[in-house]
């Protein structure tokens, strides 16, 4: 493992056992299965997939908020190295300072009974980062200014704010403990396009200024493409393709990525109906299809895909894919 990697998952699986129905084996939701990724320091790492693909679970596992069933996640910055699977007690508290989460819905994420100042100050007090009220206030003001909230705003309650402003409050709260790693889970999905652009610009400028590493989870590939420098595509609990953004777009090698790309509605009214349609819907993670998990919806699926699990392999530098026919498909997509 190179020194530039902040957090990495090796053969990571997250399973949620369900209640037994009658006799037989206990059913298990395989939310994440055999995931291998490395997130480099200071990168804006995008994770994209449909609902039910396990992207949120993966994000939570990296914050140690979902159980790690198999495999391991390693976090290492300049000071410390943690194995998240065995992390507990004081070390876990320490990790909570370093890794933060920004939620999807800014209306649900903020307590309606707390002022904005208290919302932003809470992590400082809970984690014991600041020692006096004056120090806390100063820190809150500094972070608020960074997120373009003014002093007047700090005295108000969340209901007085619009969606975009609330999301900026959520971001301020995540930033206040000086984290090294932030998971932004669908952080712009609930916002209007002009507000979305504003929040994305804010996240980008924070990233450039402070060098925080972001795991940016979204279902919207065009937002990911615009914001992230590295993208991983998830389908039914597995990562099917991961590459630097420009490579993923110019050398698409997995048919699912291809389908996601072509499903984005084009802004050009004269380019209509070019979407390569994907039939059906994502199968249940309780009983995933054998072989390649995408075989039930893949337009290129062959006999081999139904029986043999494709290997996670490196096609070119930094570009990983899990598909038996990537070389052929990449050539075909290219034309």
């Amino acid at each position: 493992m190179s020194n530039d990697v902040l957090i990495s998952a090796r053969d990571l699986s997250v399973h949620f056992p369900l209640r037994r129905l009658g006799f037989g084996e206990r059913p298990v939701v395989r939310a994440c299965e055999g995931i291998n990724i490395e997130i480099e320091k200071g990168s804006f790492f995008g994770l994209v997939g449909e609902s039910g693909s396990g992207k949120t679970t993966l994000g939570r596992a990296m914050l140690k908020a979902a159980p790690i069933s198999l495999g391991e996640i390693t976090y290492s910055d300049t000071d410390v190295t943690y194995d998240l699977g065995s992390l507990k007690g004081l070390e876990l508290k320490e990790y909570r300072k370093r890794a933060q989460l920004i939620f999807q819905d800014p209306y649900a994420a903020l307590s309606p009974r707390m002022t904005v100042r208290d919302i932003i100050a809470e992590p400082l007090e809970v984690m014991g980062i600041t020692s006096s009220r004056a120090e806390t206030d100063e820190k809150v003001r500094e972070i608020a200014a960074k997120c373009r909230l003014n002093l007047e705003h700090l005295r108000r309650f969340p209901h007085a704010f619009s969606g975009g402003q609330r999301q900026r409050i959520s971001i301020a709260r995540a930033l206040v403990s000086d984290p090294k790693f932030i998971v932004a889970d669908e952080s712009v999905a609930a916002l209007d396009v002009s507000i979305q652009a504003d929040v994305l610009n804010l996240l980008n400028s924070i990233q450039e200024e402070s060098g925080i590493t972001f795991l940016f989870i979204s279902h919207d590939l065009s937002v990911i493409a615009h914001t992230c420098n590295f993208v991983a595509v998830m389908y039914l609990g597995q990562i099917v393709e991961a590459a630097p953004t420009h490579k993923l777009f110019s050398e698409t090698a997995h048919p699912y990525t291809r389908a996601l790309l072509s499903a984005i509605p084009s802004l050009d009214p004269d380019v209509r109906g070019h979407a390569q349609k994907l039939e059906g819907e994502i199968p249940s993670p309780i009983n995933p299809p054998p072989g390649c998990r995408f075989n039930t919806r893949c337009p290129h699926a062959q006999e081999r895909c139904r029986s043999e699990v494709p290997e996670w392999r490196e096609m070119s530098s930094g570009h990983h894919v899990a598909c038996h026919f990537s070389e052929e498909l990449r050539a075909e997509f290219g034309t």
Binding site: A197, A225, H226, L267
Partner: peptide, 19 residues
């Protein structure tokens, strides 16, 4: 303004300009 705030796939470097 609405059009300028949309991420465009054919030009990833274009800045997003919010209203």
């Amino acid at each position: 303004g609405l059009l300028n705030s949309l991420p465009k796939l054919d030009d990833l470097e274009a800045p997003l300009t919010p209203v």
